[in-house]
Design a protein around this nucleic acid. Structure first.
Lengths: 191, 191
DNA sequence: GTCTATACACCGATAGAC
DNA sequence: GTCTATCGGTGTATAGAC
């Protein structure tokens, strides 16, 4: 149910600055610290202005998440047209992803149905893009009956890279070398 | 820096009830909703009593997390002496784990150094236990040069199971059948 | 061991002026 | 589009009585 109060365009530069501020707070202090006042301070505006551009905090968080997921899809499309697409995808996941932010959004999704639905939407679309990239690589290498199906490999690449980044982030690297070698070996068979 | 106020034993039944209450709030509403009042209501006590048993909320959260990790290690030890240890471990991870709670703690760790350190401690200990279980299975099957090292397999089992549980929890099952078949096939070679 | 009372700060959200 | 002002609600943490 929308409020009756007067509101501005969520695509305006100020609204985007608010989303940037929200993600900085999310990154540095977590979703528990997301308040209109904290966001406004990060964005360099008065806190009441947040409510001119967004219905409420949940609405704002959903907008920030949607924007980020759109960027993720965009990067995947770039990977698809790279020289070595599967490797580009792997390197994208192991470098460009902020595990901190990802986990904040995941925890947020536990109790924010809009974000949860958006994650499902994103996962479905991303998995399809990833599987298409892998399928083409298999085909070009003449691999007819791969031991790991494109969908399954997409799953493995997604979550192994995320877990590696995550563990590194908290200061734990047990068995990382072995996992990285495993994927390196697999990537080589596709090039 | 400890407070000067008078405090009770964190091992007492009331303190344990407070920890139970905290985990229920964590599960149902997330770490952002963790307040002394919400926890007390779940535990059926007055909110001020929380501060008789714990220094502050961060201290309480760390205690709850440590207790949970100790249970995880305990279950792993049980798996080790099961009939089919690697399968027991896999089934433990895919059934007994609450992905919701896990992700709340992970996000919490982003901004709670005590929890972060405890995760590292737990991961290190758990990974060693898991690798030992796998190594023994390899040995008993006479597999001398496994394609996937014990450490690497421990990593894969941990994060693939967690990701499967997580995705199911948010309502997404793309490629799950393929991943499950892959692990099923691998488990069979060890039995 | 548990209660009442209380300080002080912060937050979400809105109304209305400029 | 941005500001001032403001309301009611909720949080942490402590002191002291029972």
């Amino acid at each position: 149910m929308a409020t009756k109060r007067r509101m501005g365009d969520p695509q305006s530069p100020t609204a985007q600055a608010i989303l940037d501020g929200a993600e900085r707070v999310l990154q540095s202090s977590g979703y528990g610290a997301i308040t209109s006042r904290a966001i406004a301070e990060e964005a360099g505006i008065k806190h009441q202005l947040v409510y001119y551009y967004f219905q409420d905090i949940d609405d704002l968080l959903l907008a920030a998440f949607k924007r980020r997921m759109a960027q993720g899809i965009e990067r995947l499309r770039e990977n698809a047209s790279a020289d070595k697409p599967v490797r580009a995808m792997w390197e994208n996941f192991t470098s460009a992803i902020s595990a901190t932010l990802e986990f904040e959004y995941m925890a947020l999704a536990n109790h924010h149905d809009g974000v949860r639905q958006e994650i499902v939407r994103f996962l479905t679309e991303a998995r399809a893009l990833e599987a298409a990239i892998i399928e083409r690589a298999y085909r070009e290498k003449g691999i007819d009956r791969p031991a790991i199906s494109p969908n399954a490999l997409a799953f493995l690449i997604t979550y192994c890279s995320m877990s590696l980044v995550r563990e590194k982030g908290i200061g734990c690297t047990v068995a990382h070398g072995e996992i990285e070698a495993l994927f390196e070996q697999f990537l080589n068979t596709l090039e």
